[in-house]
Every structure is written in C-alpha cells, then in structure tokens.
C-alpha cells in the first residue's frame, strides 16, 4: 500500500507526472491554482505502488510519496 500527496499550489501543470505514472494514479484536473496553472489530482480508482516515478520527474518537488 502506498500513496502520494500533491502540492497543488506549487504545480505548474507540466503534466509529466501524468505521463510517467505507470498506474494512472495522477490525472489532469480542472482546477486552476493561485498562479493560474492547470494542476493535477489523484485518480481515486487507481492504486499507487509507491514507485516514486512521479516524484522523480516532477520539476517542482510537488509530490511526496508514502509507503
């Protein structure tokens, strides 16, 4: 069992995490953050494996991974 948290205020909507998550845990969200960036959010149906790919590829250190 693993999970991630996303700092949506820091997210710049580059969507790299969405591309590299092997389990589809992250998806583009309709919400815009304070800086006007589209952000990402968790896909409740998907199951995080704690592989940290999303956190590794995130240029803005938005993602923390727990396992």
């Amino acid at each position: 069992m693993a999970k991630i948290t996303i700092n949506q205020q820091r997210c710049k909507g580059c969507l790299l995490c969405v591309s590299f998550c092997p389990k589809g845990v992250i998806k583009k969200s309709a919400k815009i953050n304070q800086k006007g960036f589209v952000t990402v959010e968790l896909n409740p149906q998907a199951e995080c494996s704690g592989c940290t790919f999303c956190a590794l590829i995130c240029p803005d250190c938005c993602i923390e991974v727990y396992k």
Binding site: L56, P59, C61, E64, V65
Partner: peptide
C-alpha cells in the same frame, strides 16, 4: 506509512521561477 520521497533539507521550500 513512512515518507519515502520528499523535499531534502538543502532545497528551500519555495516555488521556482
């Protein structure tokens, strides 16, 4: 659950340009 990935001490907790 234990945090296995997060910001390191040497990286300031700020947004970048």
């Amino acid at each position: 659950m234990e945090k296995i990935f997060g910001r390191s001490e040497s990286l300031r907790d700020v947004s970048t340009h």
